[in-house]
Design a protein around this nucleic acid. Structure first.
Lengths: 211, 211
DNA sequence: ACATGATTTAAACAAGTGTTTAAATCATAC
DNA sequence: GTATGATTTAAACACTTGTTTAAATCATGT
């Protein structure tokens, strides 16, 4: 190949622009210009703009989900062999920690988590369809694990609380910048470890509260 | 006026389509066709597509914020004259209850809360700028009230927990439909009153948990 | 050195975008 | 009834969109 990384350059540029401006507000010309490649390269290598979006998502979502799945299954096995129920906080951690830790791996993956946060925010969008195709199995497994850890909660209540928690997470993934509301004396750039624990404090309490 | 409600028809159609498809994926031709008016009517009555978006948001956000503000100030006055601190749950309620109750007032306002949910999900979007211009004062007041109700929480922690709660709320506002994850036996159409209490259960517990 | 297939390139495509214009139509006050 | 200003209309504007095409260029194996 003359330019061995044309596909990668397109993926990087697309990831950045989709995350920053959204799918519809991003043009292929904007992407190819930022990537320094020819306009037609997108359709040649990916087939269409929509297929490019899917490629952008899949590139990072697949390995991320494998990590999350691995940690979850390990936790479930440990709990079972110990004859105990998994702790709600630990179950949530298997999902949240690998996600938010992407921030540590540099700004490339920061774009990705912003993109996912955006995707979760467009219920009927193209991105949501793509996203759910790759998330459903894991989400169902997490739901099962949470049911184990919260045996006194009805299916309905658990669903809604998981819904609330997902909302919190997607919001945190999107908004890593100061916006109008933030008072000056607030440390918006919380270290990742502290952010994870603060998030788990909040959501675990919300999941476990009696009703 | 020959068609006394051209502006209203445009606002309704725009609200619906902006909420369903997002700002960029919605065209003026789509809006004017749905409204049954001429294409040029938008620029005549509102000036531009962006100004139309602002008009759509302001129409419902202004009265909503007046209600929220009124309930909050009432609560703060009561607490002060009783010599007590306001309860966190009550503070949250002044913000959440008027919001989610919009669902009861018919499908018009349902479009609006979906639109607001979407807006909160696009940190750098045009809608966010418009939205924040009209929300900042109230948000700062709510932040102050929450500080009163949680005197042991640091400003940092309070900010992040409020952030998490806002994320949950915006997610609930957006997603009032079944999506892939939902098991068949879950009642997704929870009555508004129960949804409000379930939401307050979750977020109050998250706000109040010691750290 | 040459042939082959993969890749890149510039150009064009048809369709859709928000906005503007000038004429037509309307409602209302005199 | 007619003049006046507000509103509606159809048409065109200049521009951007995603996609396709056919020729040019590249890398690679023989």
């Amino acid at each position: 190949m003359s330019h061995p990384d044309t596909k990668a350059k397109i993926l990087d540029a697309a990831e950045h622009l989709f995350a920053r401006d959204g799918y519809h507000a991003t043009s292929l010309r904007g992407i190819t210009t930022a990537a320094g490649v020819n306009l037609a390269a997108v359709n040649y290598h990916f087939g269409s703009k929509e297929a490019l979006l899917e490629a952008v998502i899949v590139r990072r979502l697949t390995p991320l989900n494998e990590v999350r799945r691995g940690q979850l299954e390990t936790l479930l096995q440990k709990a079972e062999s110990a004859g105990e129920l998994p702790a709600c906080r630990d179950v949530l951690r298997t999902f949240v920690e690998p996600t938010l830790r992407l921030r540590q791996q540099g700004s490339e993956t920061e774009d990705f988590i912003a993109l996912i946060g955006r995707t979760l925010a467009e219920p009927r969008g193209i991105a949501m369809t793509i996203f759910m195709r790759h998330m459903s199995p894991l989400l169902q497994r997490i739901f099962y694990a949470l049911q184990l850890s919260l045996p006194n909660l009805s299916t309905n209540d658990l669903f809604w609380r998981m819904h609330f928690a997902m909302g919190s997470l997607s919001h945190v993934m999107r908004c890593h910048e100061r916006h109008a509301m933030v008072p000056d004396n607030v440390t918006i750039d919380l270290p990742v470890d502290e952010l994870i624990e603060a998030f788990l404090d909040f959501t675990t309490a919300g999941m476990e509260v009696p009703r």
